[in-house]
């Protein structure tokens, strides 16, 4: 229940964070909202010597408009992202995914950047970020670099963020006017999904002009269902057309088998949820 002892640092700038990471190396761990890290420390699955709290760095909070993208600060809490009008207007898929992420208390503390850096394959933000082609801005001793969503998620709980680096913000290219739906399949309330599908669609009349589909918990990282996206392009937003395209959702995926369901069950779920998510996102 109680974490092992650690030293606590609460820097007020990103520069101080980078200096502290350089000084303490492997012994240090970044603390964002703590909604994943504190349970880990309390179970003593990890025992860093130094905890670096990002909570006092105002520059990492908030959502802003930056031309063809919106920019979400890493320390912006889920509840703020979920209620932000810019996000709803230009990246509705994120709004939809946050709505059913965890519970109200966790959404008040947990952060956008923390959830993505944590890279839980069952986490609800990876698939939407991937589907929307998010760019991850990462700061380190050598300066700042930007990593594309396709390269950000490396493996289970592993991202392109290297030792000594910190995720500062996430840029989401605007998808203004795109419909969106996050279909999350859970066994009990406020839990991680067994499988979830993140779909966003630009519809023209009754036709799907463009579609993006991300999948949660269908492998060790979030996945993009590119075959489905290609098959949907130019199709009518009808049950039959979408069903046919969605049948390919699980192709190439390598979902886990666990007590919530085996891999075949997940493959089946992916096709069903993709159909539902795409139809809803297309307004059909």
């Amino acid at each position: 229940m109680i974490p092992a002892e650690f030293d606590y640092l609460a820097p007020t700038s990103v520069e101080e964070v980078i200096a502290a990471l350089a000084e303490h190396g492997d012994d240090a761990k970044i603390l964002a909202g703590g909604q994943s890290l504190l349970p880990v420390l309390r179970m003593r699955l990890n025992a860093p010597e130094v905890v670096i709290d990002l909570g006092r760095i105002e520059a990492l909070r908030g959502v802003r408009d930056d031309g063809d993208a919106i920019v979400i600060g890493a320390m912006t809490p889920h509840s703020v992202v979920g209620g932000d009008p810019l996000v709803a207007e230009h990246a509705l898929l994120i709004t939809k995914a946050v709505e059913h992420l965890a519970d109200a208390q966790v959404r008040h503390r947990g952060t956008f950047g923390g959830a993505l850096a944590h890279a839980d394959p069952a986490g609800d933000l990876g698939a939407p970020a991937l589907a929307l082609g998010a760019q991850f801005v990462i700061a380190g001793a050598g300066g700042t670099r930007t990593v594309e969503a396709d390269d950000f998620f490396v493996d289970l709980f592993e991202t392109a963020i290297e030792d000594g680096e910190v995720l500062t913000e996430v840029r989401i290219p605007k998808h203004t006017g795109w419909g969106a739906r996050y279909e999350k399949f859970v066994r009990v309330a406020h839990q991680w999904p067994i499988v979830a599908i993140a779909a966003t669609v630009r519809a023209e009349g009754g036709t799907i002009a463009e579609a993006r589909v991300g999948m949660t918990n269908m492998g060790s990282t979030p996945l993009r269902a590119r075959a489905v996206e290609a098959a949907l392009t130019g199709q009518p937003a009808t049950e039959d057309a979408v069903r046919a395209a969605a049948a390919q959702a699980a192709d190439g995926a390598n979902p886990p088998s666990d007590l919530n369901g085996d891999a075949d069950y997940r493959r089946h779920l992916a096709t069903v949820l993709t159909r539902r998510a795409v139809l809803s996102a297309a307004g059909a």
């Binding site: 603390l31 703590g34 909604q35 504190l38 709290d53 909570g55 109200a104 208390q105 008040h108 503390r109």
Partner: peptide, 13 residues
């Protein structure tokens, strides 16, 4: 002013 689970927040936070 907003609800949190106090078992998942450090006193220093």
């Amino acid at each position: 002013g907003t609800s949190v689970k106090s078992c998942n927040v450090l006193a220093v936070q």
